[in-house]
Design a protein around this nucleic acid. Structure first.
Lengths: 277, 277
DNA sequence: TTGACAATTGACCGGTTAGTCAATTATTAT
DNA sequence: ATAATAATTGACTAACCGGTCAATTGTCAA
């Protein structure tokens, strides 16, 4: 439906400079030139719009970065990574603003969990890139590098997106490549160890209730065609209602489900629910 | 008044995990065990409470960091700076959370301007520190270093304050000292030039109206004892209503006013208003 | 042209917000 | 003890919020 896209676009503009909470459905519908009722024909609630928006843009951004990282040789990789990330952020500048704002601000646990999920996907990509470029020798400082790279990207976001600093993207990427290489080659004091990372993992998912999980699963099942994945999901749903299967079987079913792109989110939630790492 | 402090303390706790907007005056008064009316005896509005809170904590944090930077010899300076900054942030962890949340989120232009003012004070301190430690040779990358140092502090904030990562502050400071030294000694591609800094300066103060300025000035005048500074402020107020004086005289008057700590904010606003750098 | 159906509207609902102010209570001076 | 004054209360207002639904409008086949 066209209407959905229109609402997402206009809402994004408002969210970008007011945030989720301060933007009312009224404002969105006015900007779209539609009535309040029409909004609720496209989205069940304001929260559903936000959730859909996060999915839509995050998937797009991650897909772009992943593609670039996969298809670039090691020599240029870091430069291309920075450059394409900045490009992608600039292309989706409104969404990036929203993300930065809401990452620290939203009270809604569902959004936070979702954002942290996509964040973990990006972290995986960056980590695999670091390992490819620098090899085993930086194993102990890989999380240091990860957080520094993320910081550099934040510097870009702050300067370019929030303060409109006149910065050349290629130059920016070059400069950050140099800084990253410096840190990778000479850092001797690792700051963030594997244990630290483990200790701070998933502080959010304890708030995901069975009811909420069942609701999302049922909705997804309805939208799926008959397949092994759908069958697996049905079994997982029954397991949630009345536990009967062994952990090994559950883990296997979750693995099955993960194959379908539209179920990745659910498999992530289930994995956390059953505390599988 | 004791009541004011009580309200600030309790409000800060709520602001830290809900943000300004999502925290109602009702919630604050309940937590204080006072009535809604009593709140408005201490603060004219919710905004005034927030404004007072920003001033109170920012001045405290900046004073601590400034004192440390001034009283430490160059050798240990960077380490002590990081360590004391982290200590200060930990001591004021609720306020730091508020600051991080609202820096990117608040719509209220007055708060943003205030935060960016205090931010510029901290930046000045960091820059003076960089120059003291590394001397003239890093002149071209001083803004790079500034932003990297700020990024490192952000990493601390994210890990420690938001994700409660188990990190040792001394170790953390040591690690960041190494990273900073590495970047200072080997960076060859300056990212942020003087021109970039100039181009992104003060995008906010265009929203400060004469009326708002007059309001703040009048309020401050009432609270001041007779002095050269008060006289200067009265003259500046009259100048705002009916321009008559030369730029040189205005600049001098602003310089006078700046001497009183309680007028620093006003002198900053006036300086921006008259576009003095 | 008619009638069945789908799309769209906006007045309305219950709830929450910041802020006010007449009424009440507490304190102090005499 | 009494009167005057200061401090405190909480019901109240007007505005706004997300969400609903009876009523209206638009569409199209017969």
């Amino acid at each position: 439906m066209m209407k959905k896209q229109l609402i997402m676009d206009k809402a994004l503009e408002l969210f970008a400079d007011q945030g989720f909470e301060s933007t009312s459905v009224q404002q969105i519908t006015e900007k779209c030139g539609i009535s309040k009722g029409a909004f609720y024909l496209s989205f069940k609630s304001k929260d559903e719009l936000i959730s859909a928006m996060i999915d839509h843009f995050m998937e797009d951004i991650i897909k772009e970065i992943d593609r670039v990282v996969k298809n670039t040789n090691n020599e240029e990789l870091l430069y291309i990574f920075y450059y394409e990330t900045f490009q992608s952020f600039q292309k989706h500048s409104d969404f990036t603003k929203v993300l930065i704002k809401e990452q620290t601000h939203t009270i809604n646990k569902e959004f936070l969990l979702k954002i942290s999920y996509y964040n973990s996907l990006i972290e995986e990509t960056i980590l695999s890139m670091i390992e490819r470029i620098y090899g085993d020798k930086i194993k102990e400082i890989k999380y240091d590098l990860l957080y520094c790279i993320k910081s550099f990207i934040s510097i870009y976001s702050e300067l370019k997106l929030f303060y409109s600093a006149p910065l050349d993207l290629q130059f920016l990427a070059e400069s950050f490549v140099e800084k990253t290489n410096l840190l990778a080659k000479h850092t001797t004091i690792p700051l963030i160890s594997e244990e630290v990372i483990q200790a701070m993992k998933h502080p959010l998912n304890e708030d995901v209730t069975i009811e909420k999980l069942l609701e999302i699963i049922e909705q997804t099942i309805d939208e799926m065609k008959e397949s092994i994945e759908k069958e697996s999901l049905v079994l997982l749903k029954e397991e949630l209602i009345e536990p009967a299967l062994s952990p090994a079987i559950i883990k296997g079913l979750i693995e099955n489900v993960r194959n379908k792109p539209e179920c990745k989110w659910i498999s992530y939630l289930l994995q956390n629910y059953y505390s599988f790492s």
